[in-house]
Design a protein around this nucleic acid. Sequence first.
DNA 1: CCACATGCCTGACTTTAGTCAGGAAAATCC
DNA 2: GGATTTTCCTGACTAAAGTCAGGCATGTGG
Lengths: 296, 296
Amino acid sequence: MDLVAAVRRFNRTVTQRVGALDDEYMARGRPLAQARLLWEIGPGGAEVAALRSRLGLDSGYLSRLLRTLEGDGLVTVGPADRAGGDGRVRVAALTGAGRAEWAELDRRSDEFARSILAPLPGRRRERLVAAMAEVERLLVASLVVIGPCPPGDPRARACVRAYARDVGRRFDGGFDPALSSPVHDEALVPPAGVFLLASLNGEPVGCGAVKLHPGAPAEIKRVWVSDQVRGLGVGRRMLDELERYAAERGWAAVRLDTNRALTEAIAMYRSAGYGEVEPYNTEPYAHYWFEKRLAQ
Amino acid sequence: MDLVAAVRRFNRTVTQRVGALDDEYMARGRPLAQARLLWEIGPGGAEVAALRSRLGLDSGYLSRLLRTLEGDGLVTVGPADRAGGDGRVRVAALTGAGRAEWAELDRRSDEFARSILAPLPGRRRERLVAAMAEVERLLVASLVVIGPCPPGDPRARACVRAYARDVGRRFDGGFDPALSSPVHDEALVPPAGVFLLASLNGEPVGCGAVKLHPGAPAEIKRVWVSDQVRGLGVGRRMLDELERYAAERGWAAVRLDTNRALTEAIAMYRSAGYGEVEPYNTEPYAHYWFEKRLAQ
DNA sequence: CCACATGCCTGACTTTAGTCAGGAAAATCC
DNA sequence: GGATTTTCCTGACTAAAGTCAGGCATGTGG
């Protein structure tokens, strides 16, 4: 396939070559891992656990890197000083020298970006930046991973709150979760159902849930996608995953209800093969009820 | 500046993240350097010197990597068997197992590219690929480096031959270098003049020369840019460099002659500040003579 | 309050990447 | 035809990156 060949070319020429140059700029004599860590701590400081997950480092390795930067007088690591906080978590912060070094990295990163733009005449510069933004935005879709998550997880809670907020802005007269039919956590934990989370680099950017009602079609709830990744097909993938979950466990149909204000969602349901059915519940915020028969 | 910020974002999200993933796909258990080397050798084999320059490796390090791959039965290294060849150069070739491994890397590279495209709906896929191609093409301009080169160097010779070939295709009645006023190598070596080569990853993609005539304007000759990078401003950068060379050595003006068939070149000279002057030589292929006064 | 999990740490280790000096064989220069 | 250069090689290093096991303090669920 031709598209695949084009992506491979891009990976080889852009990703590898520019990536290597960027690393070189960043490192400036220091081991790359240290430079990256220094950069990631940033002027505002960061919790050690956050650094570990953002950089994907082994706990022992990270600890050693922090000791080195501490030894060089660039960083201090101390207990998190927010009152009532977890006494185990530690926070890394830059010293004066560390901030100076960080600013130097920032300057060099700017310089590198400028060196990429410099050889191009003005109009081409803008075209390059526009194309970069497009690649970035579309690639983000590939980096979104969807997986199960306990509905009580803080990330899941954050998504549900964001869902209520978004929906409240769009419905006539807002949205009061207390008036809507409640969804209990237990109903979204296997085997009764599942809550799926879409994440981008560990940050939650979408969610969806399905309840497996015994002897009735499975019910899809709380499908939400963050603005950050809207329009990239994440909602459709979420729907596919939820359907697959129900189908694999023997359910032959799924259904859902929705509000007339959510026009793109309605269009997505229709294009995904959902057909309108009679109301199957008394959800006060619903105007449409959809159902889809599942394969197998 | 906003453009710089956009480029930085691109570097961070695309280059680093996709680059790292690509490496992981490529490595599959084996050290990355070995995987890259195996890939670079390819089914057709490659000379050791070519591998060294393409991968930018130390001679000793490369030799050791080859021994390891040889020890694993993936590669054989032997003398180049073309008759009359240089007896020192050695050629690395894949064994049966090596070819199988190479095919596996090829397959995985395809798989990775597919995994990037998979989450996107059809139209977005095409937009991504188009944007990638645009980024790639425009970034290439930043990777072109221009520097002095002896006119006798094989890369310089190749450029001059390509120049004659290109020009021959465009002039009415072709181009016979023997009829054109000759340019001797000595005139293009400092301090008499200079020959500049534009390279992309070590491959020659353009050239240009300037002769510093004592007591007369400096003369620009043989400005050529390969199709590969045409339209990216490389010609203009070459011109700038040649002018700078002359200006720094005290020349107050440069001039050049050109053929009416080279319409884009003529437009470039005009936009770069060149003005038409009376013929200053009897070059049979010239229709226009241009001159530019240099600053300082 | 006990058992267990979690967050961060240290010590001991391996692998990978890369450098540097020099050496044998072939090619080239004068 | 001898000096020099080039190509590839080996041996001896070093630094960086990363892994693994275990330990101590703190937090949490029963």
